[in-house]
Design a protein around this nucleic acid. Structure first.
Lengths: 238, 238
DNA sequence: TCTGTTGGTCCGGTGGTCAGACCATAACCG
DNA sequence: CGGTTATGGTCTGACCACCGGACCAACAGA
């Protein structure tokens, strides 16, 4: 009997396609206000670390699909996205809401498993990382530490596939332009400071429960943490 | 103030790197018995749908890392994988065990959300798909339908990010060579027939609860389903 | 009106990939 | 044991994607 095919064919994706999709997701995800100017080709070159020809091809696709348009010698997001009739603001909040829903589904289990399975070394690392949160903190510094903290716990859950999936949630959380633009908006600064302070306290609480190997306490701390941060972000930021 | 960088740099990956990683994962994941012959370069060309030069480069990397070795004019998995001292059989079962753990974390929530949020059209589709399970069924046919059934539910959960993540779990579930090799092993046929019959019944039960919009019943059915299939796969297959 | 920025076009070069051909050697089969 | 088949090794020419850069026309802003 012939061998079972074990592997799916390789799929190929050009750099322009990847850039196109990321820009399209960003636009439809509410990161750009309708009518606003897109970053220039040269600026996007730098951010994506690619040649201008790749960025050009991606943007040409966006023009063809009606997501952006040329105005003079500038590229702007169209005033009305095809097929979408809620505002960028609402899209952004829905994106964040869904992200928290996913976190509730996965993060609680990951943290509970880590509480049970982490090695002593991992518990020490988690405790040490929690101790580094010292408000007030610059947003960028806070987020970098926040990610390290969550990833350390992810690695302690003892399930490679679950760690990988949670890593993708963290990629969404820390790579989300919708999330970032809420945090960095000038008029949200005072509220963001409160979020940072609350989250820092929550992280220490989680780390203590983790160090004690108490999954129930960890679960309660995570539930409270998610509820608090989500409530503040959706209720108080714009 | 300068714009916040919104996008991470593009990463580049060659076809040979992708093939290398997939082969390495397959080998360390227990899909090839130690000492067994790897599929030929030409066979892998066909499966991956790439040129021989790409497959060659990937395999040369595996040789360099000590995962495979040349014996005469054949390529074989090494008898002892570097850094691994449990058998492929145990690795395979651990892979499957972790996969079920991830399913319990995510699938129950996805199904519960779908029970609450599915449209009438989606409920009808789910019911129809469940009705297509008619044991006895060929494994390949069963798995294709199984995947459609789970994906239909995933799309009904009302959270794009969660659907995407669950899609990756399904990719692992239906793309896992560890899983496939347990199912297709000749000596497991009778037990697999029992798994197919039990799963078909469970799917109908889930679809009924889904049609009734009963998340509690859906949750119970899913928990039972996962427990049953996992128990059979880990306890009775080899 | 002038300057700077942006999009448009073009160029030559590099790396990755492709399909194919051919050969030497080992494995397999009668 | 000999013949056939299969496999890995090497090589070739072609094509594509991508790169970095240069230059220009037109627009936006001061």
């Amino acid at each position: 009997m012939t061998d079972i095919p074990r592997f799916a064919p390789i799929t190929r994706r050009t750099i322009a396609q990847e850039i196109h999709d990321r820009l399209a997701d960003s636009i439809t995800g509410g990161d750009f206000r309708p009518g606003s100017q897109l970053p220039s080709e040269r600026a996007l070159c730098q951010e994506f670390a690619v040649a201008r020809t790749s960025v050009r091809e991606a943007i040409q696709g966006l023009v063809a699909e009606g997501l952006v348009e040329r105005r003079g010698n500038r590229t702007h997001v169209v005033e009305r996205l095809p097929g979408i009739d809620i505002s960028g603001e609402d899209i952004r909040k829905e994106t964040v809401r869904q992200l928290f829903e996913v976190r509730r589904v996965i993060e609680i289990s990951v943290f509970e498993l880590a509480a049970c399975r982490a090695t002593d070394t991992q518990r020490s690392e988690i405790t040490e990382l929690a101790g580094l949160f010292e408000p007030p903190m610059a947003i960028a510094e806070f987020r970098a530490l926040d990610r390290r903290f969550h990833w350390a716990i992810a690695q302690a859950c003892g399930n490679a596939l679950l760690s990988e999936l949670y890593g993708k949630v963290l990629d969404s959380l820390f790579g989300s332009e919708a999330f970032e633009s809420l945090l960095y908006a000038e008029h949200n600064q005072a509220e963001v400071d409160l979020i940072v302070a609350g989250a820092s306290e929550d992280h220490r609480r989680i780390a203590r429960a983790m160090a004690e190997g108490d999954p129930v306490a960890v679960s309660e701390a995570v539930v409270g943490h998610l509820s608090d941060v989500e409530g503040r972000m959706l209720g108080h930021l714009e």
